[in-house]
């Protein structure tokens, strides 16, 4: 993030260490005590057989070598990657499209914005799990709609190993409210004058979007993308409530963190779960690094 400053701006010879200590003081305390400590603890536990109830014993790389032959782990990686690769872009595109539509002088804007955010407000409560079953179950609304257009099926979309993951991806896309709100806030930072200028030049709405909105929104798009990927890799609650914590049927919704949770809390293999967590950090970290690297080529900052 410490991008080299470019251009003939005011040069600061002395770094702002003192001011940084003030502004980042609370953060530093939190980071050292509440984050780095537990992070190091979990890193250590990744090399032990910690079972939550007894003192951990050092077991070297056992946990990591176990990963190689752990079929459920490999399966959960496949499930999670599918979710990330499909769910993240789908949700962000929907969120961005609706944010742009809402930003541009719509009747009933406040109502739409609130309505669109509702699904995200419900969280991943038990009610949502019940509801999703009602919609995508065998006798659900979705099959009813299909029946109305002449497709008769008795598939339980939520419980068939081939489709269950897609029902959860849909649930993810449906909670597009958070990125949408962030996009909206970002859109509001774009000076109106730019649009007016473009409009006077006769640019079509699409062209305005391409040449004004998108470039100026890139820091926010970047933020949403980075966070959406990190969050999607950690996705837990939705699969947890919909599958009752099992990741079923047949492990078809076994998200990485759900597996990690089952290992740590269900089977008391917290040492292995810690190792899994660090593998996840490496994977997510790699994705984030790539993201930051690539951002140089498409994200426009005003500095």
């Amino acid at each position: 993030m410490t991008r080299r400053r470019s251009g003939p701006r005011v040069r600061q010879e002395t770094p702002d260490d003192k001011a940084a200590l003030v502004f980042l003081g609370p953060w530093l305390i939190g980071a050292v005590v509440l984050v780095v400590g537990p992070l190091l603890a979990s890193l250590y536990l990744a090399f032990t057989d910690y079972n939550l109830l007894q003192d951990p014993n050092f077991v070297g790389l056992d946990n990591f070598s176990r990963m190689l032959g752990d079929e459920r782990l490999h399966h959960s990686l496949a499930v999670t990657f599918t979710y990330v690769i499909v769910g993240v872009p789908a949700q962000l595109v929907v969120a961005l499209a609706l944010a742009v539509a809402l930003d541009r002088g719509m009747r009933g804007l406040a109502f739409y914005r609130s309505a669109f955010y509702l699904p995200s407000m419900l969280g991943s409560s038990v009610a949502i799990a019940v509801l999703w079953r009602l919609i995508f179950g065998q006798a659900g609304l979705f099959n009813g709609l299909l029946g109305a257009v002449g497709i008769d099926t008795s598939t339980s979309w939520i419980a068939d190993p081939d489709t269950a993951l897609w029902a959860i991806i849909l649930l993810h896309v449906w909670t597009f409210g958070s990125p949408m709100v962030i996009f909206l806030a970002g859109l509001r930072q774009i000076p109106r004058e730019f649009y007016e200028a473009a409009s006077t030049d006769g640019a079509s709405p699409w062209r305005q979007f391409r040449s004004v909105t998108l470039p100026l929104l890139t820091p926010i798009i970047f933020f949403n993308l980075v966070l959406a990927i990190i969050n999607a890799f950690q996705s837990f609650t939705q699969a947890f409530v919909v599958s009752g914590g099992t990741g079923g049927p047949s492990d078809s919704t076994l998200f990485y963190t759900l597996y990690l949770y089952q290992e740590g809390f269900g089977a008391f293999r917290m040492g292995y779960a810690s190792a899994l967590a660090w593998l996840l950090v490496v994977i997510v970290g790699a994705f984030t690094l790539i993201n930051f690297w690539a951002s140089k080529y498409w994200v426009h900052y005003d500095d």
């Binding site: 050292v32 005590v33 400590g37 603890a41 536990l45 910690y50 939550l52 007894q54 003192d55």
Partner: peptide, 26 residues
């Protein structure tokens, strides 16, 4: 709250590295 949490931090800071092990003995 911050001054307060500094105290908590001091108390916990000594644990930071051995955390997770300190209290799990049975």
């Amino acid at each position: 709250t911050t001054t307060w949490s500094v105290r908590a931090a001091a108390a916990a800071g000594t644990l930071a590295l051995t955390v997770g092990l300190a209290a799990c003995g049975t």
